[in-house]
Design a protein around this nucleic acid. Structure first.
Lengths: 157, 157
DNA sequence: GCGGAATACATGATGCATCATGTACGTTGA
DNA sequence: TCAACGTACATGATGCATCATGTATTCCGC
């Protein structure tokens, strides 16, 4: 049994702060988006990616990879969004197991009205409070941690 | 209609990185905790707070405030944890509307075996990748953003 | 070209987060 | 003191995330 390396005071503070920010900011953004535009953050991410892609049309598997979501989550998400008319599923002729997700006009309208408001909220609550340097550091932190996750999940499999 | 201030390239990158890290790190920690100790992160937070408090016994409202959770979330969480024997509810004599949450021996065993493993995971995936300076900056970022949230929610009410 | 493995996706079940609502109790002020 | 209001908590409904499983198709080695 090896020695346990507990967190030091600075780490404790940073970690609790991060968890709290993460939780409350996420909750706030979700609620705001819901009130303003009747979308969840998950809906938003899917819609944004669809507008970024030729013909607003992607393979499900591609979308999942791009957002780094599990396949099953994506499948359920698409099902719910289809029910609300934001996207439709289409069959894939080249690979008959596969499927496309396609943005509907209604989905496009939704993201076009939602995006500016959402960006404004993010700016107000987040970027307006941060210095350029802090933004850069946060980017670096994210990259490093994502690197750690990628490594573990690569070797682990 | 005022001009929309979209995010610049650096902000885009930082924001997408943050969202991705947040999502994947959270998912990973949750899964690990579930596998190792059959607890969710939410369970963990509740249990940690209970061990931090005299007699491992708190008012529900106090616990909700400490973790900055909504009351209803806390109520459901306590109900689930009680079902699994991790905590029990007790009546409050001084204020008969209120209730206490009390850590059970089983709950204490759970948190005592879970904590070291969880800390190890957090350290491996997070702190081992960061410099001291980055940790400090992250702490500052969290404080500033939480400040923004507090302000809005104070004036908004 | 065939049989086994891998891939793409759907679906049902469970736990979790939030909202809306309900109930009991306390508090305050005329 | 009592009526109005606020507070502490529970509960049911809904949407979301994950796990386990199932099905159809493609790929690959022989």
């Amino acid at each position: 049994m090896t020695e346990i390396r507990w967190l030091g005071d600075n780490e404790q503070r940073a970690w609790r702060g991060y968890l709290r920010m993460q939780g409350r900011l996420g909750a706030r953004l979700n609620r705001q988006l819901q009130i303003d535009s009747e979308l969840s953050l998950a809906d938003f991410d899917v819609l944004v990616h669809l507008t970024d892609v030729p013909e607003a049309r992607v393979r499900v598997v591609e979308l999942a990879r791009a957002l780094q979501w599990e396949q099953s989550r994506m499948s359920h998400q698409i099902a719910r969004m289809q029910k609300r008319g934001l996207v439709v599923r289409e069959e894939c002729p080249e690979d008959r197991r596969g499927a496309f997700v396609v943005l509907t006009p209604s989905g496009r309208r939704a993201i076009e009205t939602a995006a500016p408001r959402h960006v404004e909220t993010v700016r107000r609550l987040f970027f307006d409070r941060l210095t350029e340097d802090q933004v850069r550091t946060l980017g670096a932190i994210s990259d490093q941690v994502l690197g750690a996750l990628d490594e573990e999940e690569a070797t682990g499999s």
